[in-house]
Structure formats: C-alpha cells, structure tokens
Simulated scan of single mutants.
Amino acid sequence: CQCNGHAGECDRQTEDESDVCHCEHNTDGDNCERCKEGFYRRDVTDICQSCNCS
C-alpha cells in the first residue's frame, strides 16, 4: 500500500480500485496524505501534530 508511512495495514482492493489505508499519526485521506482537521505537519512523512491555533 502507498500510505506515506502512516499506516500499519491496509485493505487490498480489486485491480480497478486503489487500496484503503488504515491511517495513523492523525492522518487522513486515501493514502494518509493529509492531516486530520485540527492537525498540521511540515512534510508528508512527518507525524501530524495538534494545532494550537485560536
């Protein structure tokens, strides 16, 4: 799976569908390519951290 290093496992799909990552490190998206709402990171391989924004 192509989960950008943010998933320990994924569900394999058919050849016509992309695999589904079980995202960790507060990430989200089909390939764990973005942070969940309220989190941020500087690089796609970094762990998303809580945003202390007001």
Results as ranks from 00 to 15, higher is better:
53 C>H: 09
43 D>Y: 12
22 H>F: 11
23 C>T: 01
30 D>E: 14
19 D>Y: 00
44 V>Y: 10
30 D>Y: 10
39 F>E: 06
32 C>R: 01
19 D>H: 08
43 D>C: 01
37 E>C: 00
21 C>Q: 01
34 R>P: 00
3 C>W: 02
40 Y>K: 13
1 C>V: 08
24 E>N: 13
37 E>Q: 08
38 G>K: 04
22 H>Y: 09
3 C>M: 03
32 C>T: 04
1 C>M: 11
26 N>P: 02
27 T>A: 05
51 C>S: 15
36 K>T: 07
17 E>T: 10
44 V>C: 01
34 R>S: 13
27 T>D: 02
31 N>D: 10
20 V>Q: 07
32 C>Q: 03
45 T>E: 07
53 C>D: 12
4 N>R: 08
46 D>C: 00
48 C>S: 05
41 R>N: 08
12 R>L: 12
50 S>R: 15
46 D>H: 12
46 D>V: 00
42 R>L: 14
28 D>I: 11
46 D>A: 06
6 H>R: 02
27 T>V: 04
25 H>E: 11
11 D>G: 08
31 N>Q: 11
25 H>V: 01
9 E>Q: 13
12 R>H: 07
49 Q>N: 07
43 D>N: 14
9 E>Y: 07
11 D>C: 08
22 H>L: 11
7 A>R: 07
50 S>G: 10
7 A>V: 06
40 Y>A: 11
18 S>E: 14
42 R>F: 07
29 G>S: 06
32 C>S: 06
45 T>M: 08
46 D>T: 05
42 R>C: 00
26 N>H: 11
23 C>D: 05
2 Q>A: 09
6 H>P: 04
38 G>N: 01
51 C>K: 15
30 D>R: 13
47 I>Q: 12
8 G>Q: 09
